[in-house]
């Protein structure tokens, strides 16, 4: 499989993988878990201030691919990433790149809400504190308030910032995690199935939030729900068995899929 040349693999992906004002560029990315190939030669651009969703059946590698963008796969011993991923034309897998500031530039929201067992305030203030983003206490207060407002949580928690973040409801916790990610002012936010553990009302709130945040950030969202992809994203990428099958405008993917596998997935035959 390694010997497939670039041209051939690009032929595999249907649709327009490139973007005019690309912020993140992935070129011929392969990911291995030990001897297992999880991502097979994926090339895609992610535009500036663009919301793009990754869809596909379970185990298709969409989460694995997402975690390549902020090098979260580094924490898994057996995981090897090949190929090139650039942010603003800087290769993030370059040996000179320090992964710590990189992860501050590319924020991440996880599948299950994972607030720290600290107060709501400390949860949001965590990132600014470790990166030294605030000059003084007042500035930090401003950052925390601003982040919570942007995450649409301020009204609900402004009177109990010192109570534990784990005491919030699931949907509130996830918005807290989003506020925590925003607080370090990232350029890109990666979301790994952010609503899969939430009820429909909380999901709707998060989706509204993604909509709004899309005006300022590039957002990559992995989702199981095709409706969600249709609601929140402008572009959609369909993964299958570690390969990127089709990329295109969300509307077109869902109404006129060009690849037969995409069509099969969308019409419910795979998945």
């Amino acid at each position: 499989m390694n010997n497939i040349n670039d041209l051939k693999s690009l032929e595999l992906t249907v649709g327009d993988v490139f973007s005019k004002n690309a912020r993140l560029k992935a070129r011929n990315v392969n990911v291995f878990y030990g001897n297992n190939k999880a991502i097979d030669n994926v090339t895609i651009d992610i535009g500036s201030k663009e919301v793009i969703s990754f869809i596909g059946p379970s185990g298709c590698g969409k989460s694995t691919f997402l975690r390549c963008f902020n090098r979260m796969n580094d924490t898994i011993d057996s995981c090897v990433v090949q190929g090139e991923i650039t942010i603003d034309d800087e290769n993030i897998y370059d040996k000179k790149i320090d992964v710590v500031p990189l992860r501050a530039r590319i924020g991440m929201v996880f599948q299950k809400p994972n607030p720290f067992p600290k107060s709501i305030y400390d949860n949001v203030a965590y990132g600014p504190r470790i990166h030294g983003l605030s000059e003084n206490k007042e500035h930090l207060d401003v950052i925390v308030e601003e982040s919570l407002k942007r995450a649409g949580l301020w009204q609900e928690v402004s009177d109990r910032l010192q109570s534990p973040g784990t005491g919030l409801s699931g949907g509130q916790q996830q918005r807290l995690c989003i506020a925590r990610a925003i607080a370090v002012s990232p350029e890109v936010i990666l979301m790994d199935e952010p609503c899969s553990a939430l009820d429909p009302i909380a999901t709707a709130k998060i989706e509204d939030l993604i909509h709004e945040l899309g005006n300022d950030y590039s957002i990559v969202i992995v989702t199981h729900s095709m409706q969600q992809a249709a609601r929140v994203s402008k572009r959609t990428a369909y993964f299958h068995l570690g390969k990127l099958i089709e990329v295109g405008k969300t509307k077109e993917i869902f109404t006129r899929p060009q690849h037969h596998q995409t069509e099969a997935y969308i019409s419910g035959k795979i998945g």
Partner: peptide, 13 residues
Amino acid sequence: PQSLRDAGYGLGS
């Protein structure tokens, strides 16, 4: 839970 560590790494700790 590993998710707490992931959250920390994800924020650039």
